[in-house]
């Protein structure tokens, strides 16, 4: 035998929209009511309360000495409790970024979103959070951003902050060192 597929009846057949419209393929739809209320817990609860005050909070592990963000009440490496809170800076560096032209359901968006992992100043090296960077002008935003680019948090006005990660509108490139190397 040289090829296993020779005598096989392959199953797996595509259906077409017309077949459904003409009643040849029967389909059924349903919508689960998947609504949730997730408890923030202590660490993220305090983290978000910090956002409301315009502060980014991290934690320090007394075992490995890492200063971590997002904060957590136990260190997943040392597996011990954490109780020391640290106020971090509201500046950081882009670790990596993307320029995204589609939404989750694959709709096209004209003004791209720029998600990035941002390493926060004051935290240990490599400690980043996911957030959005303000889009630079021009057609190819990726040519204007670099890994290592320094950025600063742009907060919503105090009255509009609600204790959410979106209390930071986005991160703005700090002028003068946009091309800083890594």
């Amino acid at each position: 035998m040289t090829e296993v597929a020779q005598n096989v009846k392959w199953i797996g057949e595509n259906w077409k929209k017309e077949e459904v419209l003409h009643g040849k393929v029967f389909t059924f739809s349903d919508r689960p009511q998947a609504r949730y209320a997730w408890d923030t817990g202590e660490a993220i609860g305090r983290y978000l309360a910090g956002f409301k005050q315009g502060k980014i909070l991290g934690v320090r592990c007394r075992g490995c000495q890492r200063i971590m963000v997002p904060p957590r009440i136990f260190c997943e490496l040392c597996f011990r409790d954490i109780s020391e809170w640290v106020t971090l800076k509201e500046t950081g560096r882009i670790r990596t970024f993307s320029v995204c032209y589609v939404t989750w359901d694959m709709k096209r968006i004209r003004k791209p979103q720029i998600p990035a992992v941002i390493e926060i100043d004051g935290a240990s090296e490599g400690m980043g959070i996911l957030h959005l960077v303000e889009a630079p002008r021009g057609d190819k935003p990726w040519e204007r951003l670099r890994a290592g680019t320094r950025v600063q948090a742009v907060w919503k006005p105090k009255g509009l902050r609600r204790g959410a990660v979106t209390d930071i509108r986005f991160w703005r490139v700090l002028t003068g060192n946009a091309n800083a190397g890594h």
Partner: peptide, 11 residues
């Protein structure tokens, strides 16, 4: 949110 709270969302 206050310090402890819940965050609502859906799939």
């Amino acid at each position: 949110l206050k310090v402890w709270g819940s965050w609502k969302g859906e799939l």
